[in-house]
Amino acid sequence: MTSSRMALRVGVIGTGGIAGAHATAIRELGGSVELVAVADIDAARAAAFAADHGGATVFASADDLLAHAGADVVCICTPPQTHAPLAIAAMRAGVTALVEKPTALSLAELDEIARVEEETGTQTLTVFQHRFGAASLRLRELVTSGALGRPLVAACETLWFRPAAYFEVPWRGRWDVEGGGPTMGHGIHQFDLLLAVLGPWSEVTAVAERQLRPTDTEDVSAALVRFDNGAIATVINSLVSPKETSRLRIDFENASVEVEHLYGHTNADWTFTPAPGHEHLAERWNTDLPDDGISGHRHQIAAIADAIAAGKRPDVDIVDARRTLEFAAATYASAFRRTPIAAGDISGDDPFMTSMSGGIVPWAPVKAVPVAS
Rank of each mutant, 00 (worst) to 15 (best):
S347F: 08
V371K: 14
D228H: 13
Q300A: 08
G20Y: 09
D315E: 15
A97S: 10
A305F: 12
T339H: 15
P170H: 10
V58P: 10
T339S: 15
Q300L: 13
K243G: 09
G359C: 02
A135L: 02
A196Y: 13
S347W: 01
A309T: 07
A268P: 00
H297N: 06
M1R: 13
L66G: 01
D306Y: 07
E253Y: 08
H68S: 15
P102S: 01
A90S: 07
T120H: 07
D72S: 08
N254R: 15
P290Q: 12
E168W: 03
V220S: 08
V257K: 08
V259L: 00
H280N: 13
P340D: 02
N286S: 15
V74F: 11
A372F: 15
D176T: 00
G20S: 14
T324H: 12
G121A: 09
E279Y: 06
N254W: 07
L289Q: 05
L152G: 12
L195N: 08
R313E: 07
G293T: 05
G94I: 03
I304G: 01
D72Q: 11
G31M: 05
L65P: 01
S202D: 03
P340Y: 04
D228F: 03
G54M: 02
G14K: 02
K312Y: 04
P351M: 06
S256Q: 15
L224G: 10
